[in-house]
């Protein structure tokens, strides 16, 4: 269980890191906390020539709060969020999600940017940040661009980052006071990667009612107008047929998978409207 013998670099700024990743003579991987990449390296599923440690780059630990949003550098850890070492603009939603990721020893090193860029369908931030309407900030050699997290992932382990681009941070919109949030994931063992995830945000003051079904084995299923799926009654009953159609449309056809994901969504919605 030892990785291949890779080379290692720790640049101090973003341009240097991006220049290393643009090399064509080597397989180059960025590493932050390494809590997903580490096991894959140990199992030799990933065999890079060069590992670029980006945790020495001060910009990637930035925390910028504005009236409308919070920007976090990609090397902010789950534990940083869980413990409140960074501000919260989501009414506690992100702290709760962070506290449920894997185990404390993993959260002490695993990062928000690493989790997104790794694009494991079962990881928490992809679904949670998609539901929150966050933007991924991506830095390339010549320009910076933003990608909505709900379209960031293109498939298993693949996201729309191009070669030589680095996910430098995340911008999370500030929720209004009336926002309702629910997040539910199904794990058979505490801390394992989820078998099903559902995230739900209803922020009437900002006209947002979004649901995300994650851990689908592929991209998360984003229901950008979930209000049409939720009954107006006090029990907030879901339109099961419509949700199943959406699942089927995204390639989730197994009735057991549909059932598990539907129950997660129902629980997330119930959690959000809990008095």
């Amino acid at each position: 269980m030892k990785p291949v013998n890779f080379d290692f670099a720790r640049p101090s700024d973003l341009p240097a890191a991006i220049a290393l990743a643009s090399r064509e003579d080597a397989i180059v991987k960025f590493i932050a906390g390494g809590q997903s990449l580490g096991p894959m390296l140990n199992l030799r599923l990933v065999q890079p020539n060069l590992l670029v440690d980006i945790t020495g780059i001060a910009e990637l630990k930035r925390v910028e709060e504005t009236p409308d949003a919070l920007e976090l550098g990609s090397c902010i850890t789950h534990a940083d969020i869980e413990d409140g070492r960074v501000p919260d603009v989501t009414g506690g939603a992100m702290r709760a999600v962070a506290a449920g990721i894997a185990y404390r020893a993993v959260r002490n090193r695993g990062t928000i940017g690493g989790s997104l860029a790794h694009a494991d369908p079962s990881a928490d931030w992809l679904s949670a940040l998609a539901a929150l309407g966050a933007q991924a900030i991506v830095r390339g050699a010549h320009k910076e661009r933003q990608i909505p997290v709900d379209t960031l992932m293109t498939g298993v382990f693949e996201c729309s980052l191009e070669s030589g681009e680095l996910l430098s941070g995340v911008e999370i919109p500030r929720l209004s006071k009336s926002a309702r949030w629910g997040y539910y994931k199904h794990c058979r063992k505490t801390g394992e990667l989820a078998h099903a995830i559902a995230a739900f945000l209803h922020d009437p003051d900002r006209s947002v009612c979004r649901a995300v079904i994650g851990a689908t084995g592929s991209k998360p299923i984003v229901l950008s107008d979930a209000s049409v799926l939720i009954g107006k009654g006090p029990d907030h009953a879901l339109d099961r047929a419509a949700i199943e159609r959406a699942m089927t449309g995204h390639g989730m056809t197994d009735p057991i998978e549909q059932q598990i994901h539907f129950v997660c969504l129902r629980r997330a919605v119930q959690q959000a409207y809990r008095p």
Binding site: D7, R10, N49
Partner: peptide
């Protein structure tokens, strides 16, 4: 803990990749 970022990170100096190993790989 008050520092941000992965535990253990942020103390090390800049490390440059050595070209030798890349070639041999």
């Amino acid at each position: 803990r008050t520092a941000l970022g992965p535990a253990g990170a942020g103390h090390g100096a800049v490390v440059a990749a050595s070209a030798v190993q890349l070639g041999s790989g």
